[in-house]
Write a protein that binds this DNA or RNA. Structure first.
Ligand SMILES: [Mn+2]
Ligand SMILES: [Mn+2]
Ligand SMILES: [Mn+2]
Ligand SMILES: [Mn+2]
Lengths: 167, 167
DNA sequence: GGCAAAATGTAGCCTTGGCTTCATCATGGG
DNA sequence: CCCATGATGAAGCCAAGGCTACATTTTGCC
């Protein structure tokens, strides 16, 4: 620990009191309620970020099952651009969460919950892409941005997108 | 691969001559080029997700510095809804990345690069909120969704938003 | 001016989500 | 029919980003 050298060279510290706010000796910080609201927004974004990965897996597996008839770890990994080991670990988590099931060397399948989630995720993905396209975003960029945006679009916002697209 | 004949191919759309000779009993899997493109989109989203956290810290620190005159770990933590220890670890990372600097017990400051990034992040945040509002999303929902969406909006899409908002 | 409380920092634990490496399994071509 | 090869799975490493618990420093208040 190079914790030495902690001599506070008496700077013009108190020269920046920034004492805005009300008449009271209250702290300059903004009201608790506002900070709490902001914290809630960030917590919300963190939560969405946490489920984003599983959503993408479920969406992709559903697609593979529909288009190819089966969803193999290697294909999943290739489509996501990760190693097969990474895909297998995520698949284990999907199973733990009750979204998928599989037996060794037999490919992956979705549970009822998994299929329901996949449908929801796909609808959201498409709607986000459609909205971006409608705003003039080039197709490849729309697809790319949508891959991240989709996980942060609430039901309310989704409805707004639908309204705008006239649906 | 599988012997079944899976004809429903998404890539038979129109252009996109990336198709490999599909005349033979070629694998049902979609072309390498398409899978690679999809993998690239996911890689892009992963990368954006990775920098999202630091962006939020930088944006918040800049705001605290502007509004309060100082950015203290405890305030940062409260506004983000995380423990102060978590904030301090993130701040260490900001410093490592050359975005911030600080001395023990003295609050956090942004480097030139940090300020530049903050300006960019804030502009993006505002534009996303404005777009959502323009589409009829309620203010609190717009703020909440924007907190996540903002990190996945490319420059191209940003321009499209500006165009739509008439700027 | 001194001291208790608040703020800050450190240490260590956990999960997620990447990776590489190595072991095992399944299958199709010869 | 057999085994080379590719697919699958297991193990273990790493960084990020949460947390709690505890140590240290600063500050506000009497
Ligand atoms: Mn996605
Ligand atoms: Mn998607
Ligand atoms: Mn954000
Ligand atoms: Mn933001």
């Amino acid at each position: 620990m190079e914790g030495d050298a902690m001599m506070p060279d008496a700077e013009a510290e108190d020269a920046a009191p920034a004492g805005d706010a009300a008449s009271e000796g209250a702290p300059a910080g903004l009201p608790d309620a506002v900070a709490a609201q902001e914290a809630a927004r960030h917590a919300n974004a963190r939560s969405a970020r946490a489920s984003a990965l599983l959503h993408d897996y479920v969406e992709l597996i559903d697609d593979l099952l529909n288009v190819e008839g089966e969803a193999r770890p290697t294909d999943i990994a290739r489509r996501l651009g990760v190693s097969h080991a990474t895909a297998i670990k995520a698949i284990a988590r999907l199973k733990r969460e009750g979204l998928a099931h599989s037996r060794p060397y037999r490919g992956v399948f979705l549970t009822e919950a998994g299929r329901a989630l996949a449908a929801e995720v796909r609808a959201r993905h498409r709607l986000v892409v459609d909205l971006l396209r409608a705003l003039g975003v080039p197709e490849d960029v729309a697809e790319s941005d949508a891959e991240g945006i989709e996980h942060h679009v609430s039901g309310e916002t989704l409805k707004a997108f639908e309204r705008f697209l006239g649906r």
